[in-house]
């Protein structure tokens, strides 16, 4: 699971959970896989992601290197920063571990890099 994917997941699909974001990451195995760097893509995705959640996620898996707590206005042409963001969004992958719902504590296991967000029928909001 890449952290860009984590940025889009919530557990509020569970009955009774209102926000469920961001999911807590409890990793047991993290890898960094090389992905081609595309500054335009990183800039575009920055307008779509929740940066505080990305910052928190990257630090929680031990890969917050080069990320500022808050993003300033100078991101667009700052290649070093864009590379750090590219790394956090696309290259850092949680291979094994759990995602944990911040409200209910429900765990969603990550196995072989794939988070399992399937719920039992009786857990689902209808």
């Amino acid at each position: 699971m890449k952290l860009i994917t984590h940025n889009m997941l919530t557990s509020n699909i569970i009955k009774g959970v209102t926000k469920g974001f961001p999911l807590i990451i409890a990793p047991t195995k993290v890898e960094v896989k090389e992905v081609d760097f595309n500054p335009d893509f990183v800039n575009k995705m920055l307008t779509k992601i929740d940066y505080p959640a990305l910052y928190q996620a990257a630090n929680s898996v031990g890969h917050g290197e080069g990320l500022p707590e808050q993003l300033g206005d100078d991101v667009k042409d700052n290649t070093d920063l864009l590379k750090a963001l590219h790394n956090a969004m696309l290259q850092v992958e949680v291979i094994e571990g759990d995602l944990v719902c911040p409200e209910s504590g429900r765990k969603f296991p990550i196995a072989n890099g794939i988070p399992n967000m399937l719920l039992l029928e009786n857990e689902v909001e209808t």
């Binding site: 994917t5 509020n12 890099g113």
Partner: peptide
């Protein structure tokens, strides 16, 4: 290495508004 996988029920994803708003237009 650009492909990420997620195990989920596409029918459930459509139902819930907060989840949909996180995924919407991404």
């Amino acid at each position: 290495t650009n492909v990420d996988l997620l195990k989920a029920n596409v029918r459930h994803l459509a139902r819930c508004s907060e989840l949909a708003s996180r995924l919407q237009g991404k």
